[in-house]
Amino acid sequence: NRLGIIYEIQGMKAVVLTSEGEFLIIRRRKDMKVGQQVSFENEDIYNV
């Protein structure tokens, strides 16, 4: 599992900021809110 803070939500995608200072786009889940810490898997990351 990886951890990140939700920075922005766009439709079915969420932008998270990881503890390494990396911004990633992941698959959104219904319970996500901006500012929330979430765990996610590598499979949830969109390749940009």
Results as ranks from 00 to 15, higher is better:
residue 43 E to V: 04
residue 16 V to C: 03
residue 16 V to E: 00
residue 22 E to S: 09
residue 1 N to W: 08
residue 6 I to F: 01
residue 21 G to H: 03
residue 18 T to L: 05
residue 22 E to C: 13
residue 32 M to Q: 05
residue 10 Q to M: 13
residue 37 Q to D: 06
residue 17 L to C: 05
residue 35 G to K: 03
residue 23 F to C: 12
residue 45 I to G: 06
residue 43 E to S: 09
residue 9 I to Q: 01
residue 37 Q to G: 04
residue 18 T to D: 03
residue 45 I to Q: 04
residue 13 K to D: 04
residue 14 A to R: 00
residue 9 I to M: 11
residue 42 N to Q: 14
residue 29 R to P: 08
residue 43 E to I: 05
residue 3 L to S: 11
residue 20 E to H: 14
residue 39 S to D: 06
residue 22 E to R: 08
residue 7 Y to D: 02
residue 39 S to Q: 09
residue 7 Y to E: 04
residue 16 V to R: 00
residue 45 I to Y: 05
residue 12 M to K: 13
residue 6 I to R: 00
residue 47 N to Q: 08
residue 14 A to L: 06
residue 34 V to L: 13
residue 22 E to N: 08
residue 1 N to C: 12
residue 9 I to K: 01
residue 28 R to N: 09
residue 33 K to I: 14
residue 42 N to I: 14
residue 44 D to M: 03
residue 15 V to W: 11
residue 41 E to A: 13
residue 3 L to G: 13
residue 42 N to E: 15
residue 2 R to A: 07
residue 2 R to C: 11
residue 3 L to I: 10
residue 46 Y to S: 05
residue 28 R to V: 15
residue 23 F to L: 10
residue 18 T to V: 06
residue 30 K to D: 13
residue 11 G to N: 10
residue 13 K to S: 09
residue 23 F to G: 01
residue 10 Q to A: 07
residue 20 E to W: 02
residue 10 Q to C: 12
residue 37 Q to V: 14
residue 31 D to Q: 11
residue 5 I to G: 01
residue 4 G to T: 01
residue 11 G to W: 07
residue 47 N to C: 15
residue 4 G to I: 01
residue 5 I to W: 10
residue 14 A to F: 06
residue 11 G to L: 11
residue 20 E to F: 07
residue 42 N to L: 11
residue 47 N to V: 15
residue 38 V to D: 00
residue 32 M to S: 01
residue 5 I to C: 08
residue 29 R to G: 10
residue 13 K to H: 15
residue 31 D to R: 05
residue 36 Q to F: 12
residue 28 R to A: 07
residue 46 Y to G: 08
residue 2 R to E: 04
residue 25 I to R: 06
residue 18 T to H: 02
residue 27 R to D: 06
residue 9 I to R: 01
residue 17 L to T: 06
residue 38 V to I: 04
residue 10 Q to L: 06
residue 33 K to Y: 15
residue 33 K to T: 12
residue 15 V to S: 08
residue 6 I to H: 00
residue 14 A to D: 00
residue 4 G to V: 03
residue 40 F to K: 01
residue 3 L to T: 12
residue 9 I to V: 06
residue 32 M to W: 13
residue 44 D to V: 02
residue 47 N to H: 14
residue 26 I to D: 00
residue 29 R to F: 07
residue 17 L to I: 07
residue 12 M to C: 15
residue 8 E to W: 09
residue 18 T to C: 06
residue 10 Q to S: 15
residue 3 L to W: 12
residue 11 G to M: 04
residue 7 Y to L: 15
residue 9 I to L: 08
residue 37 Q to L: 10
residue 31 D to S: 08
residue 4 G to H: 01
residue 31 D to T: 13
residue 18 T to R: 01
residue 25 I to F: 07
residue 12 M to P: 14
residue 7 Y to P: 00
residue 27 R to T: 11
residue 48 V to I: 13
residue 20 E to Y: 05
residue 38 V to N: 00
residue 33 K to W: 12
residue 30 K to W: 07
residue 34 V to G: 02
residue 33 K to Q: 14
residue 2 R to F: 13
residue 45 I to A: 06
residue 43 E to R: 07
residue 18 T to M: 04
residue 20 E to A: 13
residue 36 Q to P: 00
residue 9 I to G: 01
residue 16 V to N: 00
residue 1 N to D: 08
residue 19 S to R: 14
residue 27 R to Q: 08
residue 41 E to K: 14
residue 12 M to L: 04
residue 28 R to C: 15
residue 3 L to H: 10
residue 18 T to I: 03
residue 2 R to M: 12
residue 44 D to Y: 06
residue 38 V to K: 01
residue 26 I to V: 05
residue 1 N to I: 15
residue 4 G to S: 02
residue 32 M to A: 07
residue 45 I to T: 02
residue 45 I to M: 04
residue 26 I to Y: 01
residue 21 G to S: 07
residue 19 S to L: 10
residue 24 L to Q: 05
residue 8 E to S: 14
residue 14 A to M: 12
residue 20 E to M: 12
residue 39 S to Y: 12
residue 12 M to G: 13
residue 23 F to T: 09
residue 33 K to M: 14
residue 36 Q to R: 06
residue 3 L to R: 09
residue 34 V to M: 10
residue 46 Y to A: 09
residue 37 Q to S: 10
residue 9 I to F: 15
residue 36 Q to W: 07
residue 23 F to A: 06
residue 19 S to T: 14
residue 2 R to I: 07
residue 45 I to S: 04
residue 8 E to Q: 12
residue 11 G to S: 08
residue 8 E to P: 00
residue 1 N to V: 14
residue 34 V to R: 04
residue 43 E to F: 03
residue 31 D to A: 08
residue 33 K to H: 11
residue 11 G to H: 04
residue 47 N to S: 12
residue 36 Q to T: 09
residue 41 E to G: 13
residue 36 Q to G: 04
residue 19 S to K: 14
residue 9 I to N: 01
residue 13 K to Q: 06
residue 45 I to W: 06
residue 25 I to G: 04
residue 36 Q to H: 12
residue 40 F to S: 02
residue 24 L to N: 02
residue 42 N to D: 11
residue 42 N to R: 10
residue 2 R to G: 08
residue 27 R to G: 07
residue 11 G to P: 09
residue 45 I to P: 03
residue 45 I to L: 11
residue 43 E to H: 08
residue 10 Q to F: 11
residue 40 F to L: 08
residue 2 R to S: 07
residue 37 Q to P: 05
residue 41 E to M: 13
residue 2 R to P: 02
residue 19 S to V: 05
residue 46 Y to D: 11
residue 8 E to G: 12
residue 15 V to H: 10
residue 18 T to S: 09
residue 35 G to P: 01
residue 36 Q to S: 13
residue 14 A to E: 00
residue 4 G to P: 02
residue 36 Q to K: 05
